[in-house]
């Protein structure tokens, strides 16, 4: 399922990032975010704003449309 469909605060495992824009993929790779790591949505900003995610022990922010491209599975 898509990460945007998940619950806020719940842990998921990333299973596909390949639908993301290439530059976003590269930056996520720099941050250690690859298939197989755990991710939690901490918060989303109003009016379709960005999400704040916790992944690999750090907090990052991504736009909703990008979070929508992250496929995850239940743990």
């Amino acid at each position: 399922m898509k990460l945007t469909e998940g619950q806020i605060g719940a842990k998921y495992r990333i299973c596909n990032l390949s639908n993301l824009n290439r530059i976003v993929q590269k930056r996520l790779l720099d941050l250690g975010v690859i298939e197989g790591v755990e991710v939690t949505c901490i918060r989303k900003m109003p009016f379709g704003g960005p999400y704040i995610l916790e992944v690999c022990g750090q907090q990052i922010s991504l736009r909703k449309k990008d979070v929508n491209c992250i496929e995850v599975e239940e743990m």
Partner: peptide, 9 residues
């Protein structure tokens, strides 16, 4: 181009 936003907090 497609706008990019990835930021570390």
């Amino acid at each position: 181009e497609e706008s990019i936003f990835v930021i570390e907090l």
